[in-house]
C-alpha cells in the first residue's frame, strides 16, 4: 500500500536521477568528475559478478554487524547500570548530551597504535561512535515505563527477573529499537570512515584505493553499493521504528 506522498517521493527521486543522467550524457558534467548513474549500475553489476571486491564487501559488512551488536549489547547494559544509579546519572547526563560534539574519529590513530591496523581498531571506533545512542535510548526507554505497569508487577508478586523480562523489557522495547536503529547507522558510518582513513581492507579502503588510482568506474560502482546498502537498511529500520512508535501512541 503506497500513499500519495510515497508516489510523489518516488517521482521526485526518479526525476533527480534522470536529470543527473541527462546532465552526464549531454556533457554538462565532465566524465572525469562523475560518470552517469546507469554506468554506475553497470559498474556495480560487473564488480559483483566478477567477485573482485567480495572479500572487502564481506569484511565491511561483518565489521558493521559486529560493532552494532557490541554497541547495542554494551550500550544496553551501561544504560541499565546508569539508570540504577541516579547520582552517577545526574553527573554523566551533560556529558552524554554533548558527546556527539566530540570528533571521535580523532582518536582512531590511538586505537590503531593499541590494536594495530585491522578489524579490531575499526570495530573499537565504530562502537565508540554508536554506543552513546544506545545508552541514551535505554535511559529514555526505562524512564518511560508507565508506573501502573510496575504496580501491576507488584500486585502479581513478580520477582525481579520476571518483572524485567515480562514488564520492563516489552514496555521499553520501542525506545530500545530506536537505539538499535541509530547504533546501526552510526556503526556503518564509523566502519566506512575508519576504513577510509587507514586500513587494508573493506569497502571504504577500496573506494580510497580506486580514487588514488583514478579508477573512476570501480569507485562509483562501490560508492553506489554503499549508498544502496545504507539507504535500504536504514529505511527498513526506520519503517519498523515508526510502526513501533505509532503502536506506543495508541
Amino acid at each position: 500500500m503506497i500513499t500519495r506522498e510515497g508516489w510523489i517521493r518516488f517521482g521526485v527521486v526518479a526525476a533527480l536521477v534522470a536529470a543527473f543522467e541527462a546532465a552526464c550524457r549531454f556533457g554538462f558534467i565532465p566524465r572525469t568528475v562523475v560518470i552517469a548513474p546507469t554506468e554506475m549500475v553497470v559498474s556495480l553489476w560487473r564488480l559483483i559478478e566478477s567477485g573482485e571486491y567480495n572479500d572487502d564487501i564481506l569484511s565491511t559488512l561483518r565489521n558493521v554487524l559486529a560493532s552494532s551488536l557490541l554497541a547495542v549489547g554494551l550500550g544496553f547494559m551501561t544504560g541499565v547500570l546508569i539508570h540504577a544509579l541516579p547520582r552517577l546519572r545526574a553527573a554523566i547526563e551533560p556529558l552524554l548530551a554533548s558527546y556527539y560534539a566530540i570528533p571521535t574519529f580523532m582518536f582512531y590513530p590511538v586505537f590503531i597504535v593499541v590494536f594495530g591496523v585491522g578489524d579490531r581498531a575499526i570495530i573499537a571506533i565504530a562502537v565508540l561512535l554508536s554506543i552513546v545512542a544506545m545508552i541514551t535510548s535505554t535511559l529514555t526507554g526505562l524512564d518511560r515505563i508507565p508506573r501502573v505497569l510496575r504496580k501491576t508487577a507488584r500486585i502479581y508478586r513478580m520477582n525481579l527477573p520476571a518483572r524485567a523480562l515480562l514488564i520492563d523489557l516489552p514496555a521499553a522495547a520501542p525506545y530500545l529499537f530506536t537505539g538499535i536503529k541509530l547504533s546501526f547507522a552510526y556503526a556503518f558510518i564509523g566502519v566506512i570512515a575508519s576504513e577510509f582513513i587507514l586500513s587494508g581492507a573493506g569497502i571504504g579502503y577500496s573506494i580510497a584505493y580506486t580514487y588514488n588510482n583514478f579508477n573512476n568506474r570501480n569507485m562509483y560502482g562501490l560508492m553506489l553499493l554503499v549508498i544502496l546498502v545504507a539507504t535500504i537498511a536504514n529505511t527498513a529500520l526506520d519503517m519498523i521504528d515508526r510502526r513501533l512508535q505509532t503502536r506506543l501512541r495508541r
Binding site: 558510518i189 566506512i192 573506494i207 580514487y211 560508492m223 554503499v226 549508498i227 545504507a230 536504514n234
Partner: peptide, 18 residues
C-alpha cells in the same frame, strides 16, 4: 522527510572523492 533522513544516515565519507 524520508529522503532527508536517508541522506542524513548515509556514510558521507564515501562521497569524499566526489
Amino acid at each position: 522527510e524520508p529522503i532527508l533522513i536517508a541522506l542524513y544516515s548515509l556514510p558521507k565519507v564515501t562521497l569524499y572523492p566526489l
